[in-house]
Write a protein that binds this DNA or RNA. Sequence first.
DNA 1: AGCATTGTTTCACA
DNA 2: TTGTGAAACAATGC
Length: 250
Amino acid sequence: MPELPEAERARQILEQHAVGRTVARVDDTDAFVCRPHPAGEIDGVMHGLVITGARRRGKALWLETDGGIDLALHLGMSGSFRANGAPSPRNWDRFTIWFTDGTHLALHDKRRLGRARLDADRTRLGPDAADVTRADFRRRVGRGRIAVKARLLDQSTLAGVGNLIADEALWRARIGPSVPAASLDEARLDRLRVELRAVIRDALKPGGGSGRGAFARSRRSGTCVRCGAPLERGTIGGRTTYWCTAEQAG
DNA sequence: AGCATTGTTTCACA
DNA sequence: TTGTGAAACAATGC
């Protein structure tokens, strides 16, 4: 599920169930999720620290502590947070923080592509896609021979756009996903930014989500819900991509 | 059985 | 050196 909107919801869970609490113990025994930390290292560092903030940039999440150390958390492809839940089946809780008040918070992640690590490097992360400025968007997205969709998926260009939101925004802006990023003029870049932000805004609403837009219905039916033309399917930027053959020709 | 999956990192190559 | 694309990563669901 996780793209920017899901990451923001996850951040709110952290805000509600972690901020203000003191860490009693951490289960960091999943070596893959906690890479490169050996088991016990995060636990040792976090023990006794108070969580002072829950922050997000794009899909990257992190908890701030009164020890000046950040705990970075990433949902990967299938992660979510469960507060005070019953133990999940098949040990799908990959990382758990217990607090001194008896509550706990678990990173539930079937595929184990989620991450928990200390002092992660966020310097190469671009501006958050939800509030990137028009000038910034033009400069960062509208460059290079790379397909515009691949550019949108690059987290150092913009932070937060994933496969579904990229397809949805390009469809709404009527831009072909494979056109070179630098071939878009300012008007089209502005249009893309407006639609991208609208997609994110809708997905942040209650009942929304990254795969709940109008284009998601087209994707299921194989037909553009706007014009009725068949959708094309291909691979762009390493991800399966759908687009309308009539409206997104160029 | 085989293929696809809403993400990131690493590696090869131009 | 920089930009680009493909493969690898892990596990599940169809």
